[in-house]
């Protein structure tokens, strides 16, 4: 909406990786609507707070419903939307600070429930909107505005974390090729369970790692981004661990478990098995 909205005064910095992620989300939503023959209004994008969260205001074209909530809580809001209206397609967008620091407590429960939503995480390894503090994925020793003597904490490996917590669909990508990224997001939407698409999305102001992603032959630096091998069996958890532990930024689907039932399916099952009582009947139980 906001592209033509004179009141909206937020801008991503030139070259921000989130532009590419936004394009990918636009492609994915359009593809999903077309494939499932559902209106765009059946999509809900729940955003966290940070540079990434502004994606919900910057989407172009036909608009989905949006919910720009509070820092760290995109998953709980998505839980509410999805379980209230399981027929809706729910997508969350959040950054590494939002999702992995303040919001980390919410990943495990959704993984355990296999909540049928797709989370797109824009990882720039820094808090951008508050001007450059260290995040859970900032590398060890890096000097940022909040780590004047270098970061002292070991960075989290998000992909390994997701796998350990039992997330049933894990893909990794980067913001550089929106069409490829869109395919991963659409695959996440189709997955009947909790899907996370973790995206390396460089911050040109505070943590520009475009060069690292691409590598530099002349300087002898290999690219940190690498394609997931075509023969990788995404149903093999151990194989996924091995791939993830190679480090860098894998591009592609790492893990997918379709054997687990999603929470909405389980709740629907209860609804058909149990016999709900009317409120009047519930009241009768207290007759005296």
């Amino acid at each position: 909406m906001s592209a033509k909205n004179p009141e909206y005064d937020f801008k991503w910095c030139p070259g921000c990786g989130d532009f590419g992620v936004r394009r990918a989300v636009e492609f994915a939503l359009a593809d999903w609507s077309q494939e499932t023959k559902t209106p765009m209004s059946n999509n809900v994008v729940v955003a966290g707070i940070g540079c990434s969260g502004n994606l919900v205001h910057l989407l172009e074209g036909e608009q989905p419903f949006g919910f720009h909530g509070i820092h760290g809580r995109s998953l709980p809001i998505a839980l509410g939307v999805k379980m209230a209206r399981p027929e809706l397609n729910v997508l969350t967008v959040a950054g590494d600070g939002d999702f992995l620091s303040i919001g980390m407590e919410h990943i495990a429960p959704q993984a355990a429930r296999n909540l049928n939503i797709t989370a797109v995480i824009m990882d720039n390894g820094v808090y951008g909107l508050t001007k450059g503090q260290s995040s859970p994925t900032t590398e060890l020793g890096k000097v940022t505005s909040s780590t004047p003597f270098g970061k002292m904490e070991t960075p989290v490996n998000p992909l390994e974390l997701y796998l350990t917590l039992g997330v049933s669909f894990i893909a990794s990508g980067y913001s550089v090729k929106p069409r490829d990224l869109a395919k991963l997001i659409t695959a996440g939407m189709k997955h009947p369970g909790f899907a996370i698409v973790h995206v390396a999305s460089p911050c040109t102001t505070y943590n520009d790692f475009y060069d690292a992603l691409k590598g530099n032959k002349a300087e002898g630096r290999a690219p940190t981004a690498w394609e997931v091998p075509a023969d990788h069996d995404a149903g093999d958890r151990d194989a996924a661990y091995k791939l993830i532990r190679k480090g860098g930024v894998p591009l592609g689907l790492l893990y997918k478990d379709t054997s687990r039932t999603s929470l909405d399916a389980k709740i629907r099952d209860i609804g058909t098995k149990a016999k709900p009582k009317t409120v009047a009947a519930l009241m009768d139980a207290y007759d005296i």
């Binding site: 765009m40 502004n54 919900v56 205001h57 919910f67």
Partner: peptide
């Protein structure tokens, strides 16, 4: 959601559409 009038429910101060 699912009906007409898509907007952004926004916890930041917003304009008439729901943009910050």
């Amino acid at each position: 959601p699912g009906g007409p009038g898509a907007y952004v429910a926004n916890g930041s101060e917003h304009d008439s559409y729901g943009d910050t």
